[in-house]
């Protein structure tokens, strides 16, 4: 379980987080959604012990990340936004050193690495240098590394950023597979469809505050069921409707596009701005 109470973070005069409260139960796939600069990565950096808390507290699996950092860090694995693998080391060496940092025995490390390479479909690539892998394969290795010590929680900070659509979908399948094994997944993203497709619950973060938190379906229902994008000389305007009949009545010519409401619409209706830049 992840418990965050009144979490605040200041960088000088800048308030990056302004009192975040959140509980993520065991086994949930939770998406933390917001535009760049909303405070998503700051939250993850705090939860993983990389950034100090200005005020409030955070507990992971019952352990306080500031007061009991070593116990708290054993509860989670993390996939950082940057691919932070040693490019000059092999896939096996990167994973093996991680296992050693977590106090795993040599035999346990070997067995687990073999299992995970099969799991991420990289069997036979143990001896490949990281610098010889593509971006998508590197990302899969970072996910395997985060799972190596069998944590109950996994943090994924923008795990598909910079990847093409096909590879992104393979990563999504892997994330779902991780959740199905009972792991709590905390995912930050600014890809709307990622949160919509994967998450059990979604929090909208804007300017360091959670402005809404619910299931994707309930959040979308806040905006309506159907949307019509109208293209005008001044730009695009979106209108929301509770049912398709109402929307169709509004659609009088080809300048209107009828579609289902998505999470972007929910965010837009709450903040007046889009998640994706």
């Amino acid at each position: 379980m992840i418990e965050i109470k009144d979490l605040q973070k200041n960088f000088g005069d800048t308030k990056a987080l302004k009192g975040v409260n959140l509980t993520v139960p065991d086994g949930e796939l939770f998406a933390y959604l917001g535009p760049n600069g909303a405070g998503k990565s700051t939250t993850i950096r705090i939860l993983t012990g990389l950034t100090k808390i200005s005020k409030g507290r955070a507990r992971l699996g019952g352990y306080d990340i500031e007061k009991e950092p070593r116990a708290a860090k054993r509860q989670f694995g993390v996939v950082h936004q940057h691919v932070n693998l040693d490019p000059e080391l092999t896939v096996f060496e990167n994973l093996d050193i991680h296992g050693q940092l977590f106090g795993m025995s040599k035999a346990a490390r070997r067995a687990r690495i073999k299992e995970l390479l099969d799991y991420i479909e990289l069997t036979g690539r143990a001896a490949t240098l990281i610098k010889q892998l593509s971006g998508g394969l590197k990302r899969r290795v970072t996910i395997a590394r985060a799972l190596l010590h069998e944590p109950g929680i996994i943090f994924l900070d923008e795990p598909t950023v910079g990847l093409d659509a096909a590879i992104r979908r393979r990563i999504w399948a892997l994330i779902k597979k991780i959740q199905l094994r009972g792991t709590t997944v905390f995912l930050t993203t600014h890809y709307i469809e990622e949160a919509e497709f994967l998450a059990d619950r979604v929090a909208f973060l804007d300017k360091g505050r959670i402005i809404a938190l619910d299931t994707p379906a309930n959040l979308m229902a806040m905006a309506g069921a159907w949307a019509i994008d109208q293209f005008k000389d001044s730009g695009m305007q979106t209108h929301y409707f509770k049912d398709r009949k109402q929307a169709a009545a509004f659609q009088t010519d080809d300048s209107f596009t009828l579609r289902r409401v998505n999470l972007e619409d929910a965010f837009l209706s709450l903040t007046g701005k889009k998640v994706q830049p």
Binding site: T48, G49, L50, K73, H80, N84, H98, L101, F102
Partner: peptide
């Protein structure tokens, strides 16, 4: 990579 060390126990 320092992030990896900082996030390790």
């Amino acid at each position: 990579i320092f992030d990896e060390f900082q996030a390790a126990p």
